[in-house]
């Protein structure tokens, strides 16, 4: 399914050799995978190509393999041809030391999403201007709820520690 389609080839040429570009045809998603050190260059090139805003920033946790994927989904408003494309810019980082450069300087729209990814996964965005917690209460800070080793209770009875659900 991952294939070197014409779109992907075109994009790969434009981005140069620092990124591997594939298109997931089933999902309709163009995947750009880069090494952390090339992240800034590639993102700047993507922006020059017309991908002008960031839809979402997220991370995917793989505890067994001990790495994390940080993904920027970018698309375009100004360029109609690119408007129906979605590019996912993926960086694989170590889980023990989740550090990656922040792209707020390139896409300002990723500001709040990066803040959120920081508090949910513990990913440290280097160069982010404002990494305060966004959504979580103080009690949950530093617990990284969206990582896979944060396990929710499976049974309802686990919740009622004192017994008796009625007030």
């Amino acid at each position: 399914m991952l294939a070197e389609t014409p779109h992907a080839q075109k994009l790969g040429l434009a981005l140069g050799g620092s990124a591997s570009v594939t298109e997931d045809q089933k999902a309709g998603l163009i995947e750009v995978r880069v090494e952390p050190k090339f992240l800034m260059d590639v993102s700047k090139k993507l922006k020059e190509l017309g991908f002008d805003h960031c839809v979402s920033v997220t991370a995917v946790d793989y505890p067994r393999e001990n790495y994390m994927d940080v993904i920027w989904h970018v698309s375009s408003y100004s360029n109609e041809e690119l408007g129906n494309k979605l590019v996912s810019l993926t960086v694989r980082i170590s889980r023990d030391e989740p550090r990656v450069g922040s792209l707020v300087g390139v896409w300002e729209s990723s500001l709040f999403s990066e803040r959120e990814t920081h508090e949910m996964f513990g990913v440290e965005f280097e160069g982010h201007p404002d990494l305060r917690p966004l959504l979580l209460p103080e009690e949950l800070l530093g617990k990284w709820p969206l990582r896979k080793d944060f396990i929710l209770p499976k049974r309802r009875s686990d919740l009622f520690r004192k017994g008796g659900a009625q007030p």
Binding site: H53, Y77, G83, N84, S109
Partner: peptide
């Protein structure tokens, strides 16, 4: 566009982007 706002708010700023049309 730079801030990545969406929906009717974006279109009120003159950017013609509706997912129903563009994708």
């Amino acid at each position: 566009t730079e801030l990545g706002v969406v929906g009717p708010n974006l279109r009120a700023s003159g950017v013609k982007c509706d997912v129903r049309k563009c994708a």
